[in-house]
């Protein structure tokens, strides 16, 4: 019953020959199944409740399937199309994509460059730089939320108000480039690329740009992938900071839209649920596509987005 390539864990196959352990095993298995039901059911409930009238969503007795009498193809599937096509929904979708692309560039480029410099290039006072970057890891952005808000409102030296430039997007994109965590992630990854490899290329006359482009980057695909996925998920799901800095309703993100959509009393809650489900699709798709990489990324970095 066990596969042979499985690493030996707590309970061995020999243990499982005893009836008592076998019973325990299947007991734990059933508990896990039950638990899995509780993680999946609310999501499924949301998905199916979008197809019910509001009175049925909040009704007694509770129903799981919409209008149990009707066949699945008679359910109100139109609500999904209606919500997606309705008013500005697609626009908010694109807004968020646009923002995510901006934040992605900001999250990747400066951090990768800094990580490369700290790992493979000569820099003065390296220990001081490392310390300065490292310090910021200790302070989550919520702790300096207020000064950060005032900073993007009145940028030091130049005095620009980033919240009034392009609907406040720069106020989200530029701070997205601040991640000591990403810098260290890139640095430790570049550290693993043998310096001898880089030096050999240098001796062969490759330019620094050529070394970076032809040798280092092709070897670092996985770290770029992890940072990219986390960056997209982070931007897509972010709420507090966009709530603070985006003032233009036309340019709000999908999460801000969901928040306001739910507060509009005259809208059927089934429509809100449909909107919630549609807004979850990009992260879910990303997860489906990169499931292994995301899970190993979390295990590798210890960070959940």
């Amino acid at each position: 019953m066990a596969t042979t390539d499985r690493a030996r864990t707590l309970v061995s196959d020999v243990d499982l020959r005893s009836t008592r352990t076998r019973i325990l095993y299947w007991l734990v298995f059933s508990v896990l199944c039950l638990g899995a039901v509780t993680t999946v059911v609310p999501l499924l409930w949301g998905f199916l409740s979008a197809l019910k009238p509001t009175s049925e969503i909040f009704g007694y007795p509770p129903t799981f399937l919409p209008k149990p009498a009707a066949r699945p193809w008679e359910w109100q599937w139109g609500v999904y199309a209606e919500v997606f096509g309705g008013s500005q929904f697609v626009r908010y979708f694109w807004n968020t994509f646009l923002l995510a692309v901006g934040c992605w560039v900001a999250a990747i480029v400066p951090s990768a460059m800094a990580g490369y410099a700290l790992s493979k290039l000569r820099t003065p006072c390296k220990w001081l730089l490392l310390l300065l970057f490292f310090m910021t890891l200790m302070v989550p952005f919520q702790a300096y939320l207020v000064p950060l808000f005032l900073t993007v409102r009145d940028l030091p030296l130049v005095g620009w108000n980033l919240m009034q430039v392009f609907a406040g997007y720069p106020a989200i994109i530029l701070p997205a480039g601040v991640s000591a965590f990403n810098i260290f992630l890139f640095k430790s990854f570049f550290d693993d690329i043998p310096t001898s490899l880089v030096e050999a290329a240098r001796i062969d006359g490759a330019s620094e740009a050529g070394i970076l482009w032809r040798i280092v980057l092709p070897l670092s695909y996985s770290v770029f992938a992890v940072v990219s996925i986390f960056s997209f998920m982070g931007t897509w799901n972010d709420f507090l900071w966009p709530l603070l800095v985006i003032n233009d309703n036309q340019w709000k993100t999908i999460m801000l839209h969901l928040y306001q959509y739910d507060l509009q009393g005259d809208i059927g809650k089934n429509k809100v649920l449909a909107a919630l489900m549609i807004a979850s699709l990009p992260p879910l798709t990303l997860f489906a596509l990169f499931q292994k990489r995301i899970m190993s990324g979390i295990a590798m970095t210890g960070v959940k987005f």
Binding site: P110, M113, L118, L148, V152, A180
Partner: peptide
């Protein structure tokens, strides 16, 4: 190579902190 990160950190991390 460090410049972009230093600039961003100065403005949006070290200074606000």
């Amino acid at each position: 190579f460090l410049l972009p990160a230093l600039l961003l950190f100065s403005l949006f991390s070290w200074w606000p902190i």
